[in-house]
């Protein structure tokens, strides 16, 4: 089931930082007009016109993180996650599956096909990045465990280990962090479990050794350092929804038309643009409307935010 989706961004987009910076500056200089249209054509059919699609640098992706298990500051994860033990690692897959059990990460990886997926990442805080993930489709993992007929949702859980995750000593959120998807969202070809970044193993601050990536949803849905995956018949609880149900819904699809109660979601700022970075419009489903809009047909997205 691997390779069900092809990047709208190519390997050529994963360029060294220096080159990348130059290209971005050139692009900024030529913003709009013919240049924008030309780039969009190059980037492929799913790319939005005039969008800046260069992947963010290794430094940007690994130094600006929300991973509250290590603190609420953006640099806390990169400063404090180094001591997290990620080997050995196993994932308990249970609930409505044919073959429940504790799966060693090595065993999982030996059966999965790792691919490069260059995705936009849009945080609910209105900043964004483009990230070259390496990972496998979640559908393949669920297939390995065998999804039973009654399963409708997939629940995920992050490691709970306050000795190594100092943020878990404070009740900023209820620990362990939990997330969930509808089964069709989980089986969608865009939904991956990431194991790497830029061809290197996933750094701890980015959710090592195994994390979910759902590119059309706000970043907090893409749960990090996953230790448990449970197939359920009922909608599972999710951490931010439990903390503040009015502000964070179960779906949390990127949607420029539905504001966060405290701030606008219409625009975003790409990380790495410097002190004079311009805001850019946020795209419906984070630019993956063509791929995922059908999942939500007939749903009132202002109600199911």
């Amino acid at each position: 089931m691997a390779h069900r989706w092809t990047n709208d961004l190519t390997e050529a987009d994963v360029t060294p930082h220096g080159v990348w910076l130059n290209r971005r500056q050139i692009m900024a200089g030529l913003a709009g007009g013919i240049a924008g249209a030309g780039l969009a054509a190059l980037a492929g059919p799913a790319a939005a016109a005039g969008d800046d699609l260069e992947p963010n640098s290794w430094k940007e992706i690994t130094s600006y993180n929300n991973f509250y298990e290590f603190g609420t500051g953006k640099s806390d994860p990169s400063e404090r996650a180094g001591s997290l033990t990620t080997s050995p690692w196993s994932v308990r897959i249970d609930g409505l599956v044919e073959r429940p059990g504790d799966y060693a990460l090595g065993d999982i990886l030996s059966k999965m096909t790792i691919e490069r997926r260059i995705y936009r990442l849009r945080c609910v805080e209105a900043w964004s990045m483009v990230v070259p993930w390496d990972g496998f489709e979640l559908a393949d993992l669920l297939g390995m465990a065998g999804v039973k007929a009654g399963a409708k949702y997939v629940a995920f859980e992050t490691l709970l280990r306050p000795e190594e995750m100092p943020g878990q000593r404070y009740p900023v959120l209820e620990w362990p962090y939990v997330e969930g998807l509808r089964l069709d969202e989980a089986m969608h070809p865009l939904t991956i479990m990431a194991t790497g970044l830029y061809g290197k193993p996933l750094p701890n601050q980015n959710g090592a050794p195994l994390r979910l990536v759902v590119p059309w949803k706000y970043g907090f849905k893409s749960i990090k350092s996953v230790v448990r995956i449970t197939l359920t018949s009922d909608q599972p609880p999710t951490s931010w929804n439990k903390a503040n149900p009015r502000e964070y819904g179960f779906y949390s699809n990127v949607n420029p038309n539905v504001d966060h109660p405290r701030w606008s979601q219409a625009t975003e700022r790409r990380v790495g643009g410097g002190l004079f970075s311009r805001r850019q419009p946020t795209l419906m489903f984070n630019g993956y409307e063509r791929e995922v809009a059908s999942l939500y047909e007939g749903m009132d997205l202002a109600k199911y935010y």
Binding site: E60, Y64, K74, S75, W127, R269, G274, L275, S277
Partner: peptide
């Protein structure tokens, strides 16, 4: 602060940091 913001001393999201 503005100098750090312009030269990377405030991290990769200097507007927010500043």
């Amino acid at each position: 602060l503005f100098y750090w913001g312009a030269t990377g001393g405030l991290g990769v999201e200097p507007i927010r940091a500043l």
